[in-house]
C-alpha cells in the first residue's frame, strides 16, 4: 500500500509541476490550446479514432474510460509524432506545435473534473447539495454531511467530468464498502446499513446513524444484501437544469486532496 501511496504522491508532484524532467507542453494547457487541439484532432485523427476523442471505426477512444500506459504529456507527444509500431497508428509530419495542441486536447479529454472549468454556480451547487438534492444526508464534503456514502471532498480530483455526470444520472456499480445490507441476529433484531467490510466469518455494518455494528456471522440468522446502490441516479430529472448544472459545478471543484486517482493501469506498465 505504501508504494501505492508513494505513487499517489509522485503523481501529485507531477500534476503540480514539481517533478517533470521530460518535456511538457510548451503551449501550456489553457482551454484555448485544448480547443485548437480538438479542431486539429477532429480534422486529422478521425479517419480512425472517433470525433472528440470517442471510439472510431478503426481505433479506440481516448477518453478516461480505458487503461493507459502512456499518460504523461511527453509520452502522448511521442506517440502522436512517431506512431505505435505494429499497429495502424501512424507517425505524423505535423509540426511539433500542432502536435502539442493535440496533446493538450487528449490530456483534456482524460482530465478529472477539477482540472476543467465547469460552468455553473458553485455556491448554489452547495445549496442544492444540502437542500433539494438531498446529497448531504449520505455524503460528506469537508467534514459536513452524512456517513453512509463516500466522502466527496475530493470527488472532482478523482473523476473525469463524464463519469461525474454518469454517477448522477445512470445506475452505477456499488462502490466497495458501500453495499446495502440488512441482517437479523439470533434474537430477531434487525440491523440495516452498508457493509463496510465482510468475510465468511464477520461483518462490519455502518448504520444510517453512523454507528458501527461489529458482527460475527455465527450470531446472525439472515444476511440480505441489496443488489442496487443507495445512490439515486436521476438527478438530471429530479433537479431542474440550473440546479443540476450548479451541483455538477460544485462537485467538480471538490479537490481537498489535489491528486487525481490514478488512471487504470497507470504506473503498472512492465509488471
Amino acid at each position: 500500500m505504501q508504494s501505492l501511496v508513494l505513487s499517489f504522491a509522485l503523481a501529485g508532484a507531477f500534476a503540480c509541476g514539481a517533478q517533470p524532467k521530460k518535456p511538457t507542453n510548451p503551449l501550456g494547457d489553457s482551454p484555448q490550446v485544448a480547443e485548437a487541439g480538438q479542431q486539429l484532432y477532429n480534422r486529422t485523427c478521425t479517419g480512425c479514432h472517433g470525433p472528440d476523442g470517442g471510439e472510431g471505426e478503426r481505433a479506440p477512444s481516448l477518453d478516461a474510460n480505458r487503461r493507459y500506459f502512456r499518460v504523461s504529456e511527453a509520452a502522448i507527444f511521442e506517440v502522436v509524432k512517431n506512431g505505435i509500431p505494429g499497429t495502424a497508428m501512424p507517425s505524423t509530419n505535423l509540426p511539433d506545435t500542432e502536435i502539442w495542441k493535440i496533446v493538450a486536447f487528449i490530456r483534456n479529454v482524460r482530465a478529472t473534473a477539477s482540472d476543467l472549468v465547469v460552468a455553473g454556480d458553485v455556491r448554489n451547487g452547495m445549496l442544492v447539495f444540502r437542500g433539494e438534492g438531498g446529497c448531504v444526508r449520505c455524503h460528506m464534503i469537508r467534514g459536513q454531511g452524512g456517513l453512509l456514502g463516500p466522502d466527496l471532498s475530493s470527488i472532482g480530483a478523482q473523476l473525469p467530468l463524464k463519469k461525474l455526470h454518469e454517477t448522477l444520472t445512470k445506475p452505477r456499480p456499488i462502490p466497495i464498502g458501500f453495499r446495502p445490507v440488512t441482517v437479523t441476529n439470533l434474537q430477531g433484531e434487525t440491523i440495516s446499513g452498508v457493509a463496510r467490510n465482510a468475510d465468511g466469518f464477520s461483518l462490519q455494518v455502518l448504520d444510517a446513524k453512523g454507528k458501527l455494528h461489529l458482527l460475527d456471522t455465527k450470531e446472525l440468522r439472515t444476511v440480505n444484501y441489496a443488489k442496487e446502490s443507495l445512490m439515486p441516479h436521476n438527478f438530471d430529472r429530479t433537479l431542474n437544469g440550473e440546479q443540476y448544472r450548479d451541483l455538477v459545478a460544485m462537485l467538480a471543484v471538490q479537490a481537498r486532496t489535489k491528486v487525481r486517482a490514478p488512471l487504470q493501469g497507470e504506473n503498472e506498465a512492465g509488471r
Partner: peptide, 19 residues
C-alpha cells in the same frame, strides 16, 4: 426498500456514532 429505510433513518438527523 433499503433506500427508504436507510436514508429515512439518516434524515432523522444527529449522528449517533459512538461518542
Amino acid at each position: 426498500s433499503f433506500r427508504t429505510l436507510l436514508i429515512g433513518a439518516a434524515l432523522s438527523g444527529v449522528s449517533l456514532t459512538a461518542q
